[in-house]
Design a protein around this nucleic acid. Sequence first.
DNA 1: ATTCGCCAAATAATCGATTATTCGTGTTAT
DNA 2: ATAACACGAATAATCGATTATTTGGCGAAT
Lengths: 232, 232
Amino acid sequence: MVYPEGMTQTADPSAKPMLSERVHTLLQTAIMRGEYAPGEALKPQELAQRHHVSLAVVREALVRLVGEGIAVRLPNRGFAVPDFSDQRWQQIAQARRTIEPVMLRLAIEHGDLDWEARVRAAHHRLTRTPAYVLEEGGYYSSAWSEAHRVFHRTLLDGCGNPVVLDMFDRLWTAGELARRWSAQRTPDRDGVAEHRRLEEAALARDADTAAEVLTQHLTLTVAALTSPPDEA
Amino acid sequence: MVYPEGMTQTADPSAKPMLSERVHTLLQTAIMRGEYAPGEALKPQELAQRHHVSLAVVREALVRLVGEGIAVRLPNRGFAVPDFSDQRWQQIAQARRTIEPVMLRLAIEHGDLDWEARVRAAHHRLTRTPAYVLEEGGYYSSAWSEAHRVFHRTLLDGCGNPVVLDMFDRLWTAGELARRWSAQRTPDRDGVAEHRRLEEAALARDADTAAEVLTQHLTLTVAALTSPPDEA
DNA sequence: ATTCGCCAAATAATCGATTATTCGTGTTAT
DNA sequence: ATAACACGAATAATCGATTATTTGGCGAAT
């Protein structure tokens, strides 16, 4: 006897995750927070005993991180945080300038009412989140960074294409890491006006304007790297 | 005493690769060749004893494959080949149509003489490689498929941006796998004329024409999926 | 007859230990 | 003094075995 399709699916979303999953997440956030310097070795032994797990789970987590591009592997010489150079940051920024505007056109073409609502919500949250907190030493607050990511991601997710959105996610992650380490100082601009113009153009289904504003937004963000931050 | 930078680099390119590396490559080509059906389980035990390695190396290879998007992981239920649906193939094709034309513009803008030479070489090789061999059962010959990939990849690599090229590589791999399994029959068109027009427009630095031809090329390839193949 | 719960087999995840490779230091030959 | 070599410590890669989870079948209760 064959059970009906999907009958055997337990699919418990609250099930406790695997150890390797947890260690992976821990390492991911640690690297993204800048707790490891570029080029610094990620030593399985140390990590294993620090988190009270075996080498195998650390190793699995590290392999996953390599797949995500936020760790590198030197065969027979272990794992390390990639040393994101300024060049790398430029490459990532160029990639974003190249593809995100066309992604946005796709989103504007395909986005539905639910998308529009989510764009408004994300923009509202972004504008109401303080960009800096004194305690966090000169960088954007983590809350603002997350709101910023969600806004850009929400703009694009109107396209409904997970393949495209996955590319955005990878670019954003790599970009944040590269930006953290490639500049002496993170650019002091949060592009408030541009975000508002992006929101308006997107909701007005004005693809040309939206793409133009996004290109400008991404260009300025990079240009601010090499020139002193004048704009607030 | 500190040695000069790079002094300790052994960097033996002919060094024998790790076991996990070898198993990873083996599984990758097996999956890409269609030796596993979509949804089919990739059982560590069986693979381990078939290739005379331990579970750990198989497991590491599988984790890497998941990172590359050609395997999926069901927590506590093992690994499997993703069941690429027609929908998935459509999504990948849309992603390619969306971003490859702008990538090509970037390549045309930045490509140097060496790039031009490689484009000519790749196109020459593509046109002189037979697209079908009777022995391989209705699909393109593997030699032609590889020449096809190299041509498209070479066109884009003029941009010199590894971040962008990595996106192409991932899209191409996923696309080949999805195409193999999502259609009853692979489209019977190889777009000879389009490839030639692509080469000419690219070398003439005519970005508008090249982008247009590439969009058309990618659109037809997908359209051929749902309609009977009329064009040869 | 169907559903629920329990138990055993199969498989996934993790662990501790073993083997292989690299790194650093000290020694020797030029 | 410098460079090549050898050896031991440190670390990476791999293995074999253990533990945890799921799967499938059987019987009892409804």
